[in-house]
Design a binder for these strands. Sequence first.
DNA 1: GTTTTTATGTGATATAGATCACATTTTACT
DNA 2: AGTAAAATGTGATCTATATCACATAAAAAC
Lengths: 188, 188
Amino acid sequence: MTSIKFRKHIEEVIAITDKEFDYVFSFFIKKRLKKHQFLIQKGSPVNYEYWILKGLLKTYTIDENGKEYVLQFGMENYWTSDYLAFQNESLATLLIDCIEDSEFLCIGRDDKETICYEVPAMANFFRIKATKGGTSHQQRILSLLTETTEQRYNNLVAKLPHLMQRVPKKLIAQYLGVSRETLSRLNS
Amino acid sequence: MTSIKFRKHIEEVIAITDKEFDYVFSFFIKKRLKKHQFLIQKGSPVNYEYWILKGLLKTYTIDENGKEYVLQFGMENYWTSDYLAFQNESLATLLIDCIEDSEFLCIGRDDKETICYEVPAMANFFRIKATKGGTSHQQRILSLLTETTEQRYNNLVAKLPHLMQRVPKKLIAQYLGVSRETLSRLNS
DNA sequence: GTTTTTATGTGATATAGATCACATTTTACT
DNA sequence: AGTAAAATGTGATCTATATCACATAAAAAC
């Protein structure tokens, strides 16, 4: 059941009482999208943050020439949104779309603040999650600065081995920051 | 005075009472370092997070060939640490050293947790700060993926114009992920 | 099940940027 | 002030990767 799974996810980070959990959980609503549908589109307001129950997503941008760049892949147990737009109440600069049929728990911006101020444990939950997210972004920056394309590819395979079977190589290339031709030539 | 400045910094994000602030502030200790001294060294334990009162720092790594890569510059009002090591209680993989004489407020790992659980407003403070830090790392990743060296340079100048006068171009190049020769040739 | 779309591999160039090398200027050190 | 060290600019290569082009294979759509 969804609430059990979600509670387990939270309790991996902080302690929470039944009462607190029920209160927190009441603010989340479930959402389903099919493959190719958009969770967030460039230029739209971003009023929700999403916890991914199942599925696979890509968060990306498109430049003036139509070239796409993958910021991140989202999958089960990951949180996602266009956080810049979500926080600043501005319009999305990113797109998030479903690579597979997906399910989410959604929390509105104001409801998230309510939860964090009413249930201090949840402020700590999101604090710790945000800090971990930050360090993983740091690792990605360092990887882009210091590693060769081949090293980045090998590290990605090591980190998310199953991802390779679930997405086209083109998207892996867009994540690594190389052309699909160069990625194709790595393995040979 | 230090505590006034620090309180102002906190109150830009959340509300805090006198009593809470005094309690929180009591956990911080002041530290001073001179130019060229290290705040954090690769291979050492990282038990503190630092708020920069004044000065200028670079956070960087060195690869096997001795090549250096700047993850970020730290300056007044910024928070810094090797967060990966700080959180996991592991050894530093990064180096942080002072480009100018600097002053910090230091908070220990356990004391930070204490503050966050005793003063919920501080959990929200660090949550919001961590989230903002995360989005700025995201922007950096996107910049590395999508922009040319020249665009990245121009954006950095626009974002931190005074930085150019305070650090050698070599460090700017190490931050942008290009050789100093290439950076030098941009302006011509 | 047939057609259309998408993914993938691979050759032939073009190019941004790395690397090496050295000269000059600027800054730091005692 | 005088010397040593660091920063900076610039030429001459070299190289990884982008780009363009096309063929084949695989997957999706009707």
